[in-house]
Amino acid sequence: MTNAPTYLPEYIMFGLIASSMVVAAVRVVTTKNVVHAALWLVLVLGGVAGLFILLASEFTAITQVLVYIGAIVVLFLFGIMLTRAPLGKSADLDNNVAQRIVGALVGLSLLGVMVYGLVNRWSDQKIELVGSSTRQLGQTTEQISDSIFSTYLVPFEVVSVLLLAALIGAIVLARRD
């Protein structure tokens, strides 16, 4: 164990990112300001990208930033503006108390069972990344693109059809007639 690499820096980074993500996520679902919610969401999504980098998956991280923060959040902001949401605080973003309690109960019980399952099953498993190259981890852009266009070609095609369907669906829904 003396020569085992130390993962302390990784833990520190993870702790910083994770705690900010949790705080931000809680703010997303509790804030009274719609625009703030979108900005908190940016923080969560950025945190996810950071985690991807910690996991040596740079390409996914970049995609995460580009697609989520670059496109999806902007889309959200457009949605907020197009529906003329009040830009300041508003009181009617949440459901009534009963429904919120139900939501909290369901969320907590789900969390409980997931934590139980994860702790039981995965406690002894570690991600030992130190010492292996990105290539060995199978995370280089080249490897990812190779496997998308060979092994996972069929899912890829299906996803492209899905995107087309979503495109058409969104146009049909949003057009004014």
Partner: peptide
């Protein structure tokens, strides 16, 4: 949706435990 997630929780408990 609440019912759905609740049902999912029950099923997860069933499978996990």
């Amino acid at each position: 949706a609440a019912l759905f997630f609740f049902g999912a929780t029950v099923l997860t408990i069933f499978f996990v435990v």
